[in-house]
Design a protein around this nucleic acid. Structure first.
Lengths: 213, 213
DNA sequence: GCTTAAGTTCTCTAAATGTTCTCATTACAC
DNA sequence: GTGTAATGAGAACATTTAGAGAACTTAAGC
């Protein structure tokens, strides 16, 4: 059951789309995402993927695609069963001072902070330095919550002209234009007509791991 | 069970409304929130969501909507509730490009990355800007693994003169002196005799959350 | 009981989407 | 060369989703 190159590409696109948007893409959206202009052609690919068992298709319905779920991923290490999401919170550390102990919070639940209780969040990995001044570095993972609007100052995932995505600080000008502000002294803010910008989500968390021996 | 675009939008709106207000919105409020003028149309969507099992509806009652406890859709942007430490990994985002879908990793287990299997980790909150050039900002949480030694280049929690703690990059000089290097252009590295410095742990992770309304 | 706000059930219309075709092009094995 | 598979465009048509609004029923408050 081998997938061709384009089939893999389309499958990846569909999975990413569903995870990010919460619903299936249309044939046209798939076509836009993988540079195929004919929805008939896309339809042929979707059918192939369905026949090969990697997609489920609720026919006679718009946006009826879903992933044929791989086996529900057995967690490799059994520790992750519910117990392991808390770490002791020791206190605050500042350069050259004793660690300031905390007496109210003793444990931090990482899931609660980053995953939240609603299932409308997903992760992206950052490529590039455009948010470096906010401490978001190349390679960092960020947690995004799906939203279609934002307040000034929010950091948003914005889709420009239905094509290009970017992570920037959002500011709506009084004249209705949208300003997308990077956090990098080398870059300048970009201004767009509001209708060219679609908010896809808002930054709610960031994380990074360090390799140790 | 697939939701259409507008269905997801309405579902998100209802969830946000209940989270904020503590009670269900009315049909008109939903319509105002998603730009639909006809409450008849909104009603059709609410019914669809009810039939698809993601909403519960106490009929014959005003503001009788609530979210279904266990939505039937196990794959649609949801991380198995059994252990909610996973988030879907959508891809990489770079300024001004489409989000790059990935095909190898589909989910990220946050616990696995930050908590790890060992129970010798704890968290500290950062006070000050001494590590700002490494993207560790004032207020960030960091995960530390207990260690009493470090390799050059590791970022360590070091106790100096059994008194003051600091988070710095570690470097052992050839003459046996220990250099503790901040990541802030305004600060300079400090050098200590090895016996004055006790390593308490090594930085393995960092996280930050952003407040949204 | 009465009034009002909210929910329900329709119909009408438009637009978007899915489905099924045909026709072309390219690459590759034989 | 020839056949085949993969790829892409696009037309024609069927079906679903979408939004507005009217008419009616029900719940809440007085």
């Amino acid at each position: 059951m081998n997938l061709t190159q384009t089939e893999v590409k389309i499958h990846d696109f569909i999975r990413a789309f569903i995870n990010q948007q919460g619903h299936s893409p249309t044939l046209k959206e798939i076509g836009d995402g993988v540079a195929i202009k004919s929805k008939g052609t896309v339809h042929r690919y979707v059918n192939a993927l369905k026949n090969k068992g990697v997609l489920q298709h609720n026919t006679r319905q718009w946006r009826g695609l879903s992933l044929a779920e791989n086996p529900p991923e057995p967690s490799l290490n059994k520790h992750s069963d519910s117990m392991g999401s808390r770490l002791p919170f020791v206190g605050r550390i500042a350069a050259g001072q004793p660690i300031e102990a905390i007496n109210d919070i003793t444990e931090i639940d990482i899931n609660e902070l980053l995953v939240g209780k609603n299932s409308n969040r997903y992760m992206l990995q950052i490529k590039g330095d455009s948010m470096i001044d906010l401490g978001i570095l190349d390679g960092d993972m960020v947690v995004i919550e799906r939203r279609d609007s934002a307040k000034n100052g929010d950091i948003v995932v914005a889709l420009i002209d239905e094509q290009n995505a970017t992570l920037k600080r959002f500011h709506l000008e009084s004249d209705g234009q949208v300003l997308l502000i990077p956090a990098n002294a080398d870059l300048t803010a970009q201004q767009y007509a509001a209708e060219r910008v679609r908010i896809q989500g808002i930054l709610v968390g960031q994380m990074r791991t360090y390799q140790i021996s």
